[in-house]
C-alpha cells in the first residue's frame, strides 16, 4: 500500500541521503525533469551510488528519462542491476513504449541475474494521448503496478492553465482512476505543487481520495504527514469495518443468510470494502481495537 510517493531530485546528495528517514511510503528518485541536461550523467551516477550504499526501508522508484530522449536506455542499464522496486517511464502515451521499456528491463534483468519481472513499472501519464490510452497502457505489461497522473505536463499538453482547484484535470483524474482500477493496478494522483499552502494540499488530497486514488505523489517532504494521514483508513472507518465483519460472522453463526448493521443490510461490496479497510489498517500498524 503506497499512500505517499516523494520525488527526490537525482542530483541532490543531501536529499538522497535523507530520503531514507523521511516518512514517505515510496521515493521517486528523479533522473528526468529535476535534472538539467548537463547533469544527467552525474545524477545517474549519484542515484546508482545511493542505491548501492543507502539502506532505504521503503519502496524505491526511479523516474527515467522519456522514451524519445537519448538517456532512457542508459538510465535503465545503470539502474536495473541495483534492483529498484519500480521504474517510472515518463510521458507515456501508448502501450508500445511500455512494451519496449519492459523488454529492455527483461534483458537487463537476465544479464544481472535478477528474476525476470522483479522490477515493476509505474507509467507516468502526462499527455492527452496518454489519458485516452490509459487502460491500454495500464494493461501493457504484467510489470505495471500503478499509474501516476502528471498534472503539470498534462495541462501544458492540453493548452490550459493548471489551477489549484484542478477542474481542468478532473476528467483526466477520473479517467486514470477508472483505467487503473479496470486493469487491477493502483491509481496515484499528481502532486500538489504549492509547498506553502497546507489547506490547499489537504483539499486537493481529499478530492483525490474521493475520486478513488489510492495515493498521491508529493514534491515536498513537508506534505508527507498530511498525505499519509488522508490516505490512511480513518478510525471511524476501521471501527465500522470491524462492526461489518463482526455482523457477518454473527449472522453466519446464527445460520442467517443475510446480515444487517444499524438497520441496513450488509451486502457483498460493503463486506469487501470492510475487509480492504481492515487489511490496510493492519499493514499500516493502525489500532484495530478500540
Amino acid at each position: 500500500m503506497i499512500r505517499s510517493l516523494l520525488f527526490i531530485p537525482g542530483n541532490s546528495p543531501v536529499m538522497l541521503q535523507n530520503g531514507a528517514v523521511l516518512p514517505a511510503d515510496a521515493l521517486i528518485l528523479d533522473l528526468e525533469d529535476a535534472v538539467a541536461t548537463d547533469q544527467k550523467d552525474a545524477a545517474r551516477t549519484l542515484v546508482a551510488s545511493a542505491l548501492h550504499t543507502v539502506d532505504y526501508p521503503k519502496e524505491i522508484i526511479v523516474r527515467i528519462n522519456s522514451f524519445d530522449s537519448d538517456y532512457w536506455q542508459q538510465d535503465l542499464e545503470e539502474i536495473i542491476p541495483l534492483r529498484p522496486q519500480a521504474i517510472m517511464p515518463t510521458k507515456c502515451s501508448d502501450s508500445s513504449t511500455i512494451r519496449s521499456i519492459a523488454e529492455k528491463i527483461s534483458e537487463l534483468e537476465r544479464q544481472s541475474n535478477i528474476g525476470e519481472g522483479t522490477v515493476k513499472l509505474i507509467p507516468l501519464i502526462e499527455t492527452a494521448r496518454g489519458v485516452l490510452n490509459a487502460y491500454e497502457i495500464a494493461s501493457a505489461s504484467p510489470r505495471i503496478v500503478a499509474l501516476l497522473l502528471g498534472g503539470e505536463d498534462l495541462t501544458a499538453d492540453l493548452q490550459c492553465e493548471r489551477t489549484k482547484g484542478g477542474k481542468e484535470i478532473f476528467y483526466s483524474r477520473s479517467s486514470i482512476v477508472i483505467a487503473a482500477r479496470a486493469a487491477g493496478v493502483e491509481p496515484i494522483d499528481t502532486p500538489f505543487t504549492d509547498v506553502d499552502d497546507d489547506e490547499g494540499l489537504i483539499e486537493d488530497a481529499k478530492l483525490a481520495l474521493s475520486l478513488g486514488f489510492s495515493g498521491k505523489a508529493v514534491i515536498s517532504p513537508r506534505h508527507l504527514a498530511a498525505i499519509n494521514e488522508i490516505f490512511s483508513p480513518q478510525a471511524e472507518a476501521v471501527k465500522y469495518a470491524r462492526e461489518v465483519i463482526s455482523a457477518i460472522e454473527g449472522a453466519k453463526k446464527a445460520g442467517k443468510g443475510v446480515a444487517s448493521l444499524h438497520g441496513k443490510m450488509i451486502d457483498a461490496p460493503i463486506v469487501s470494502r470492510a475487509k480492504r479497510v481492515l487489511e490496510q489498517a493492519r499493514r499500516l500498524g493502525l489500532p484495530l481495537e478500540d
Binding site: V21, L22, P23, P221, R222, L224
Partner: peptide, 8 residues
Amino acid sequence: TRDPIGLL
C-alpha cells in the same frame, strides 16, 4: 526550521 530533517 522548514527543513524536513530538522522537523523530523
